[in-house]
Simulated scan of single mutants.
Amino acid sequence: MNAVVERVRAAQYAVARVSVAPLLVRAGIFVIVFAGFALAFPAEVLSGRPIFFLAVAALLPAFGPRKVWTTFTALVTVGGWLLATDGYGRPVALWRLLAVAALLYLGHTLCALAALLPYDAMVDPELITRWLVRSAAVLLGSAVLGVLLLQATGTGGGAGHQWVTVLGLLVAVGMSLLLGWLLRRR
């Protein structure tokens, strides 16, 4: 009984020390991941029970940004995109493709920031602003480069966007494997 009381007091102490900035970053993770789900999945799937499961899945990287949940939600988003385009025949719109890619990147980079911030960290708002400005610069450069590559290769149709999506997923998995191998080698 004494151990339970001590754990409750420890939890109360930890909750009392939580600061606003790490909570806002984690709330941003939830919003961005859930928005990615909403854009990627077909509208027919986003009703009833599936929306509840997607909301729970969007909470997972917010609570565990250092764990596998970031990768899991990215794969769920890509799976939803492929389900919408292949399974439900939704036409591929460039704006939606770029928006889903941007949300995937923002979710990933905010998880990286949240992994560095303990719950009780006192954070200068300029740090978060600089982080988001850098992310916006990467997104802008990637969008411009992506559109230019699509135009240069002439893969403007739906099959071209699907091909680029699968190729991008393969590159991401390959880079993850390469980075993991390099880290283990160290």
Rank of each mutant, 00 (worst) to 15 (best):
V166K: 08
P125G: 03
G168F: 00
P50G: 08
L116N: 05
G154S: 06
L140N: 01
E6T: 09
L83C: 01
G154N: 08
V56N: 12
F30E: 07
D86T: 08
L178S: 06
L94C: 03
G80N: 06
V15E: 14
L103E: 02
F34T: 05
T129H: 08
V4S: 09
G80H: 10
V171Y: 08
S135D: 12
I128Y: 00
G158H: 08
A114Y: 03
S176W: 02
V8S: 06
V147E: 11
R9Q: 11
A11P: 03
F37V: 05
L59S: 11
V45E: 15
Y88A: 09
A115T: 00
F53A: 14
G79L: 06
F41P: 13
L127M: 07
A99N: 05
G87V: 05
V123H: 04
D86N: 02
R49I: 15
A55M: 10
V147P: 07
L183H: 09
D120I: 00
I29L: 07
W131C: 06
L106H: 03
V31P: 03
I29R: 04
S142M: 13
A40Q: 10
S142D: 12
A137M: 13
K67H: 15
A55S: 14
K67M: 14
R7N: 14
V33F: 12
L23K: 08
C111A: 13
S47Y: 14
T165F: 03
G89T: 03
L145S: 12
A40S: 15
Q151Y: 10
V171S: 09
F52L: 15
G107W: 01
M122N: 14
Y119V: 00
L179N: 01
T155K: 12
T77H: 03
A10E: 13
V8L: 05
Y119H: 01
L98D: 09
G168Y: 01
A57G: 11
V18S: 09
Y105V: 03
L178G: 02
A57D: 11
L97K: 00
T155Q: 15
A10F: 03
A143Y: 08
L59I: 05
V45S: 13
L23Y: 05
L150I: 11
L39W: 09
T70C: 08
L183M: 01
V138T: 07
G154E: 07
L169V: 15
G48C: 12
R26E: 08
A143G: 15
W69G: 06
T109Y: 00
F52G: 10
P61M: 01
R130I: 04
V144K: 06
V15C: 07
L106R: 12
G28C: 03
G157T: 15
A172G: 15
T129A: 08
L183S: 10
G48W: 08
P125C: 02
F34M: 13
P50M: 07
F37K: 11
R49W: 14
I29P: 04
A14D: 13
V173C: 10
L169Q: 12
G64L: 11
F72R: 04
I51H: 10
E126F: 01
L106C: 05
F63L: 13
V147F: 05
Y88E: 09
